[in-house]
Write a protein that binds this DNA or RNA. Structure first.
Length: 113
DNA sequence: CCCATGACTGAAG
DNA sequence: TCTTCAGCCATGG
C-alpha cells in the first residue's frame, strides 16, 4: 500500500459515482481530476483497484466505448457480463449506444436521460 | 538517473 | 471515415 495513492483514490471516487447502467471514459475522469493528459494513469489506477470491489471499473471504458480493460478483468468476459447485467449492451467488446449511456462526471447534473 | 511499459487521447495523413 | 503517429505522465526495473 502506498500513502501517495491520492490520485488513485480520486479515480476510485469518481468511478463509484458512475450511475447504474452508465459508463464513462478514462479521459472524462482524468479531465475531471484535472489530469486530462493522464488518462492512462486513470487506467493504471483502475488496474490498482483490482482488489477494490467498490470501484466499478467495468463501467469505465476508452473514448471509443471499447472494453479496453476487459482483458484485465477476471475470466474472459467478466467485464461484459457485468455491463450487460446492468442493462448495458455490449457487442464485440464494445459498448452499444455508448454516447447514449455515457456519463459525464463534470456534467452529471442533467445527465439524467 | 535512464529506459520501457501502459485499462488513453487527439491530431495528422 | 479510417488508419497511423506522437504526446502525456506515473510506476517499475
Amino acid at each position: 500500500m502506498k500513502k501517495s495513492d491520492n490520485f488513485f483514490e480520486k479515480v476510485y471516487e469518481v468511478a463509484r459515482q458512475i450511475p447504474y447502467g452508465r459508463v464513462t471514459s478514462y479521459g472524462a475522469i482524468a479531465k475531471y481530476l484535472g489530469a486530462a493528459r493522464s488518462a492512462r494513469m486513470v487506467g493504471w489506477a483502475m488496474n490498482a483497484s483490482g482488489g477494490d470491489d467498490t470501484v466499478p471499473a467495468h463501467r469505465v471504458v476508452n473514448r471509443n466505448g471499447l472494453l479496453s480493460g476487459k482483458h484485465h478483468f477476471q475470466g474472459t468476459n467478466l467485464m461484459q457480463q457485468l455491463l450487460e447485467n446492468e442493462g448495458v449492451k455490449v457487442k464485440n467488446n464494445k459498448v452499444e449506444d455508448f454516447e447514449s449511456i455515457f456519463w459525464n462526471p463534470s456534467g452529471n447534473i442533467d445527465q439524467n436521460l
